[in-house]
């Protein structure tokens, strides 16, 4: 391949720029906003090298390797989700994640796929966040089942999502959705909140 010297890259644009630029209150105290992703990669390990690759990732970012496909592990800068037995989705607060990992993982051990612009992350926080998501997500989002720091990969209105209950706020979720679905997901979310708040019963259900 022909490679030349790189120039500074402009900021990427939001897939939701046409509908929102900041936090939106969906119901009383329940807000949603895009939480930009600086970088995101998929790290896959070959069958005989999973332990080694995961260990390398752990050492590279100084994090514990996720033990299962439910609990994330991370640091201030990096969150690692084990999205499949031999695959990690690593989300970084800083760019250049890809080059860091490509340098660490040999091709004979695994692969690193650049996915930094493939997903949109939404932060849904406030009372009723789990109830609102339960309008679409066929997984139990109760805190006893999905405690802070854990995640679930599921589907909402036919759109694949990863739902991560974050510890930063009392009832808050980061939702990762494929970029091409972001507008439809936003529409589903706002429409569901609108319907849920149309009657006292609907509002009460969110407030439970």
């Amino acid at each position: 391949m022909t490679r030349r010297e790189k120039k500074p890259v402009p900021d990427p644009r939001s897939a939701l720029a046409s509908v929102t630029t900041g936090a939106i209150e969906l119901a009383a105290g329940l807000t949603c906003k895009e939480s930009p992703i600086a970088d995101l990669v998929m790290v896959s390990a070959w069958r005989d090298a999973a332990a080694k690759v995961f260990d390398l990732v752990g050492k590279t970012f100084n994090i514990d390797v996720p033990e299962d496909c439910k609990a994330e592990s991370g640091s201030d800068q990096v969150t690692a989700f084990r999205v499949a037995p031999r695959r990690l989705m690593i989300v970084s607060g800083t760019p250049e994640l890809l080059s860091t990992l490509r340098g660490a993982i040999a091709e004979e051990e695994g692969a690193v796929s650049q996915q930094g612009r493939s997903r949109v992350r939404l932060r849904l926080s406030g009372p009723g966040a789990a109830a609102l998501l339960s309008r679409g997500a066929p997984v139990d989002l109760d805190e006893s089942v999905l405690p802070a720091g854990s995640f679930a990969q599921t589907c909402i209105h036919h759109m694949g999502v990863l739902i991560h209950r974050v510890a930063a706020e009392k009832e808050a979720f980061d939702i990762y959705v494929l970029r091409s679905f972001a507008l439809s997901f936003w529409q589903w979310l706002s429409e569901s909140a609108h319907i849920a708040t149309q009657t006292p019963q609907g509002a009460a259900a969110l407030a439970e």
């Binding site: 644009r13 897939a15 046409s18 759109m159 679905f181 439809s184 997901f185 429409e191």
Partner: peptide
Amino acid sequence: GHETGPNIEPRRHTPMRQ
């Protein structure tokens, strides 16, 4: 549910939609 009319199924949009 509210999966009627334009909400009957999600749509995918390219980055250049707007």
